[in-house]
Amino acid sequence: MAEEYWKEKRILLVDDAREILALLESVLKEEGYRHIYTAGSVREALALADEIRPELAVLDVMLPDGDGFALLERLRERGDTPALFLTARGEEADRLKGFGLGADDYVVKPFLPRELLFRVAAVLRRCYREENPMVKLRACRVDFSRAEVLKNGERLPLTAKEYELLSVLYRNAGRIVTIDALCEALWGDNPFGYENSLMAHVRRVREKIEENPSRPQSLVTVKGLGYKLLLEEK
């Protein structure tokens, strides 16, 4: 789940259904997000945005005085606010329109609160880097700002590929990232045939982050599927 740093972000929720707003607010607050603001219309949302300068907007598409797409455009005129659409409109054309306007994610109702929390956390992680993003693992700490691993008082630099590999795993911490998704992240649109190279990079990263690379505790293999990075609680 999101770290403390992201839980300080101001989140604006816009939906014409008051019950949904109350539910979202309660779900986010239970997770630890402290600054939640709600609006039931475009007018209300814009007024609130001017006041609070939201750092993430969760928008419904159908609103009583306009639509979420137009609202996003108006919000973007005020600043580069990350946005996530949460709507009952699941048609392909709607989703494409949402992403076309620069939305960071598009969730179709009905949704599971847990799923929404993951998506909110992922958008925040992507859009706001912690000022001093020091990630604690079982045997070391990773300093992403310097691309270094701090282990046993030593600073071990990460190569570009190792950094990218750790970043992708960190953005999906606690979740399996498939071999294919990792290859795509590391080698682009034609990632076929890089499985062995990926294994070599994983081995080298393990040598840097694990106490015993042969018995990995942080970067674990999920046989046949991919890899998972396990963080230590702060």
Partner: peptide
């Protein structure tokens, strides 16, 4: 979808 969101959300909570 919207009413179902409510049901799912409240039940999950």
């Amino acid at each position: 979808r919207t009413p179902l969101s409510m049901v799912m959300g409240c039940a999950a909570q």
